[in-house]
């Protein structure tokens, strides 16, 4: 939770914006110079796309308390909508297509968010599965969405922002970074606004929220809309900047769960948490396969990797739910506070 990052009155308190600004400067100024194409292709691009999806889901689930298993559907909606806007609307800049795609995802989010007005928790989660299956089915069934390509595959257009062409791994990285940075900043502003407070109020006590006059129904649907918008944009990054060729099957229920795990591991109701969780989810399989290959050699083939990945990940999630329900972010804050404290007492 954002509010948990406690103050140490005597600690040298840096303005809160310093760390993110330094990080952004590093990401723009240093990483493109030193990064290998493996770093961009295999780590940073999926990390950025999944982080943004995590930010989107966290607004809905972490802040507003509405569980959803439909994230991948909203990613798919975003990706295919952007593809079609770009293909079919003459002269529309790519950024325009992406924003419109976000609105399409938001509209679908509102429709599938309607059950939340009646259902809660487990039942709501099950009803969001409808979005998952419906969107995937529609994209496969109607080949119009993929411009009649075989098996619904779409190819990404050339990337550009404001006329600058962004080619190659570094260009696609900068494209993703720019969008993720802007949307994340806006999301951060949102969760600390009155609307963000309303989300948390509804999550923590819906009856009290209604009594004090928070428009509960409207606020829930707004959470679905904003969350789906952001996840839709994340889907565009996933399809256009990371994979370049996607099919509807790439946005299956596994992907929805992956994003849910990201926010559980990273930290519910925390913008930073989505980035922590996504980093772990992306890096962990790579690290595991390196480690496995090193220790076990040829025995550690892709089948074994896949299985061990699932087992370790499952165990991690259970551990986090039991030991650190506030996720990696809380862990990180605690370690940082310890270090600060140790540093002070010397």
């Amino acid at each position: 939770m954002t509010a948990i990052s406690g103050h140490f009155s005597s600690a040298p308190v840096l303005p809160k914006w310093i760390a993110p600004v330094l990080l952004i400067a590093f990401a723009y100024g240093v990483v493109p110079l030193i990064g290998s194409s493996y770093l961009f292709e295999a780590i940073l691009l999926p990390f950025l796309a999944l982080s943004l999806a995590g930010v989107g889901l966290n607004i809905l689930t972490g802040y507003a308390g509405q569980v959803s298993l439909g994230s991948a559907a909203f990613m798919a909606a975003g990706a295919f909508a952007a593809y079609n806007f770009n293909l079919r609307v003459e002269g529309l800049p790519l950024i325009g297509s992406i924003v419109l795609a976000g609105f399409v995802a938001a509209a679908i989010g509102i429709v599938f968010g309607l059950p939340s007005l009646r259902l809660k928790g487990f039942y709501l989660a099950v009803s969001t599965l409808a979005a998952q299956f419906f969107v995937q089915w529609a994209l496969t069934k109607f080949s119009w969405f993929s411009n009649d390509s075989a098996s619904g595959v779409i190819d990404a257009p050339r990337l550009s922002i404001a006329g600058f062409a962004l080619d190659g791994a570094v260009g696609r990285y900068l494209f993703a970074l720019t969008i993720v940075a802007i949307v994340t900043f806006l999301a951060y502003r949102l969760v600390s606004s009155q609307t963000g407070r309303n989300f948390i109020a509804i999550r923590d006590n819906e009856t009290a929220a209604r009594i004090i006059g928070i428009p509960v129904l409207k606020t829930k649907l707004l959470a679905f809309a904003i969350s789906s918008f952001i996840i839709g944009v994340a889907g565009v990054i996933w399809a256009f900047a990371y994979l370049r060729t996607v099919e509807p099957d790439g946005f299956d229920l596994d992907r929805s769960f992956q994003i849910l795990f990201i926010i559980i591991i990273g930290g519910l109701a925390s913008i930073r948490g989505a980035f922590f969780g996504a980093a772990l989810i992306v890096v962990f399989p790579l690290a595991l396969s390196r480690l496995g290959g090193l220790l076990l050699g040829d025995v550690f083939d892709s089948g074994v990797l896949d299985m061990s990945q699932r087992i370790v990940l499952g165990a991690l999630i259970i551990l986090f739910l039991i030991l650190e329900p506030d996720g990696l972010v809380a862990l990180w804050d605690r370690i940082r506070r310890r270090l600060l404290f140790a540093w002070q007492s010397t």
Binding site: M1, R197, I200, A201, R203, D204, N205, A208
Partner: peptide, 21 residues
């Protein structure tokens, strides 16, 4: 108690004015 656990004291009290926003 029907407070909003995830909010600070100030934000809990501020939410009492949400109806006017």
């Amino acid at each position: 108690l029907a407070l909003f656990k995830g909010l600070s004291v100030l934000d809990n009290v501020a939410s009492g004015l949400a109806y006017k926003v």
